[in-house]
């Protein structure tokens, strides 16, 4: 019981820490640029990082289940290239979009299939292989060329607004709500958390673990497809090296969002907070012309300290508890 409250209070603290961090970053940004808090500026700041954030949601689910998917960025590349090539060859844009989504979903499904059929293999090694493979196929298709020639209306996806709200933000909010509901309000979400906590006990409790894992990896593929749509739309062209290195950024956001890397614990709203923390931090440092490469130092340090703190905290807690017991 004591243990329980300690852990809960800690998780609570984590969310609040992210909120505090977010406020701090906003204050910093606002003081750096007088225009920062203007509505339009805010929206363009948000639009700058939301495209890759779609992948953070399923990645949170996958990491909570104790797996990992390193191939998501390659899936973005392959599905985007497939779409680009289709359009170049005269396929109507709407069909090309379907091709993009189908490709991405299939990539995720294949990951899930391999991971569940060959349980001896860790998800890390499987998705490292498919990471190389998927991007490799993109290179076969497009070599070092770029594909463009998308119709004008396609750019609305990345740049357009509904009313005054960017389309990408609306779609992101919609998916966030869906993933939040799935993880925190449905039986499937409960089962996902159970699998992450104790895979074996979940099997013995009649949970179809294979099905859930297959679903999670497929969802990751699907969301990579959504990312591919928005990213391609924003850039109006695509290359096989698109979204390179995004997978690690996505994983970093999930971890910073307080998802336990040993599985079984995590909250979608914390992860969303983490997306905004990193995104706005990057934007703010961009205002004062700090190169994005240097921002990575800060992200790296955040990542290390955000995992170091709980582990130190836990050790101190258990020491304290022993001392308390000694005095009983």
């Amino acid at each position: 019981m004591i243990k329980n409250t300690n852990k809960l209070s800690f998780l609570l603290k984590w969310e609040w820490m992210l909120v505090a961090l977010l406020i701090l970053i906003n204050i910093m940004n606002a003081s750096l640029s007088p225009y920062y808090l203007e509505y339009n500026n805010m929206m363009s700041a948000i639009m700058a990082f939301l495209d890759r954030s779609f992948m953070v949601l399923p990645m949170a689910i996958i990491i909570i289940m104790g797996d990992i998917d390193i191939s998501v960025a390659s899936t973005v590349a392959l599905s985007s290239v497939m779409m680009g090539v289709s359009v170049q060859n005269g396929v109507p844009m709407t069909v090309a979009i379907l091709i993009c989504m189908a490709t991405a979903t299939l990539c995720g499904f294949i990951n899930g299939l391999i991971v569940t059929k060959f349980k001896e293999l860790s998800a890390a090694i499987v998705t490292i292989s498919t990471m190389i493979l998927y991007r490799g196929i993109a290179y076969i298709i497009l070599e070092d060329q770029a594909a463009s020639g998308f119709p004008l209306w396609f750019s609305i996806l990345g740049w357009g607004d509904i009313g005054t709200i960017p389309l990408i933000l609306i779609v992101f909010i919609a998916f966030s709500v869906i993933f939040w509901l799935i993880l925190h309000k449905t039986t499937a979400g409960r089962q996902i958390l159970a699998i992450g906590q104790n895979n074996t006990a979940s099997i013995y409790s009649g949970i179809n673990v294979d099905k859930m894992r297959l679903f999670a990896f497929t969802a990751a593929g699907f969301m990579a497809g959504i990312t591919a749509l928005f990213l391609t739309s924003k850039m109006a062209s695509t290359r096989p090296n698109i979204a390179i290195g995004y997978e690690l950024e996505v994983i970093a956001m999930v971890v910073l969002g307080g998802v336990s890397t040993s599985g079984g614990k995590g909250k979608i709203h914390s992860v969303i907070l983490a997306i905004f923390v990193i995104g706005l931090l990057k934007y703010g440092l961009g205002i004062i012309n700090i190169h994005s490469q240097i921002v990575t130092i800060i992200i790296g340090l955040l990542l290390i300290f955000s995992t170091l703190l709980p582990s130190i905290g836990q050790r101190v807690m258990s020491k304290l508890k022993i001392i308390r017991q000694m005095n009983l």
Binding site: N4, K7, T187, R190, Q191, A194, Q197, N198, T200, A201, S202, Y204, S205, G206, I207, G264
Partner: peptide
């Protein structure tokens, strides 16, 4: 190992097989 999720409450453990 096979029966319980140790970090969870009794209630959530009991209901797990029959959500």
């Amino acid at each position: 190992l096979q029966g319980l999720i140790l970090d969870w409450g009794i209630d959530k453990n009991i209901t797990l097989p029959n959500l």
